[in-house]
Design a protein around this nucleic acid. Structure first.
Length: 288
DNA sequence: AAGGTAACCTGACTGC
DNA sequence: TGCAGTCAGGTTACCT
């Protein structure tokens, strides 16, 4: 579920209900996800006010009084807002209870119970870490954050930047797009989708793509991510009781998961191959 | 530095 | 119905 658009949709979904609110309690039900969980937050977090929720790549950063909660959803993670008291399911690993009552804007039902931010992650590839002190410092110095690549939805991410970044690379463009140390947020779905829209074959050597085609690729990456955020936003606007599933953008896929189906542009069957243990989908006629 | 592979983990699905 | 095998939206660690 979570590439950049899904993480951003999650951020926008939970922020209005939580920002400005104080924590009442925290509960950890497993010792670790990808990394050990910060169990000491059970005593450290209560009383702290949530000042902001920001995103860096696929990481969510919740800024509190004395530090920051870093959350990564991995392959199967999701965050939901619930009224306190709802029994945790098998893979609901972390709860953070806020003192504000849950008010469902799009729901007739209102609850007077406190609102719970609940992290579910069946595969446990996700992460939750506590970063003490200043967030700005961690963005530049933390081992997980400092190594992150450029944000694709910024003006700095443009054709000239990408041309420079890819110069000399012999690796295929598709896995290169997914390398978070170069560009953050582009996962397996949006890599295939962006390359389809740009008309670039996924196996093209990254360093041998012209500036003109890279400018086109930058544009399709931005438009694909932006469209997915909009589509996700329309279905996940109400995070209360949401199942955290991805939004309606699936209906707009040109290539991903469409093996054997007709290309929406030229009607040739969409093909599937493996690159770096991951499935790649493309149209051999539209993408050269 | 670059490039490729295995590993982490559970659940859903396919085919026999 | 059961069981084995495969696959899944991510990332790091560890090879060459």
């Amino acid at each position: 579920m979570p590439e950049l658009p899904e993480v951003e949709v999650t951020r926008r979904g939970i922020a209005p209900a939580l920002v400005g609110q104080r924590v009442l309690s925290a509960d950890f039900r497993v010792p670790a996800l990808r990394y050990p969980l910060p169990h000491d937050l059970v005593t450290r977090l209560p009383g702290q006010r949530l000042a902001s929720i920001t995103r860096r790549g696929k990481y969510l950063l919740l800024q509190f009084d004395t530090g920051n909660l870093l959350i990564h959803l991995g392959m199967s993670g999701s965050l939901r807002l619930l009224p306190a008291g709802v029994v945790a399911d098998k893979h609901d690993h972390v709860d953070v209870v806020f003192e504000a009552p849950l008010v469902a804007k799009n729901s007739v039902a209102k609850s007077s119970a406190n609102v719970v931010l609940r992290l579910r992650d069946p595969r446990r590839f996700g992460a939750m870490l506590w970063l003490d002190g200043d967030l700005g410092h961690h963005l530049g110095h933390h081992a997980l954050l400092a190594v992150l690549g450029i944000e694709p939805l910024t003006d700095e991410f443009n054709g000239a930047w990408l041309k420079r970044e890819l110069t000399g690379l012999k690796a295929a463009i598709k896995p290169t797009l997914m390398d978070g140390h170069r560009i953050v947020g582009i996962g397996n779905i949006y890599a295939s989708e962006s390359l389809f829209r740009a008309g670039i074959h996924p196996r093209t050597a990254a360093g041998r793509i012209s500036l003109k085609r890279l400018e086109r690729l930058v544009a399709t990456i931005k438009e694909t991510l932006a469209a997915a955020i909009l589509a996700g936003g329309s279905s996940l606007r109400d995070f209360i009781h949401s199942d955290g599933s991805s939004g309606y953008f699936q209906q707009q896929y040109f290539a991903y998961g469409r093996t054997g189906e007709a290309c929406r542009v030229c009607s040739h069957p969409i093909r599937e191959m493996r690159q770096g243990q991951r499935a790649t989908f493309f149209c051999a006629r539209c993408q050269r």
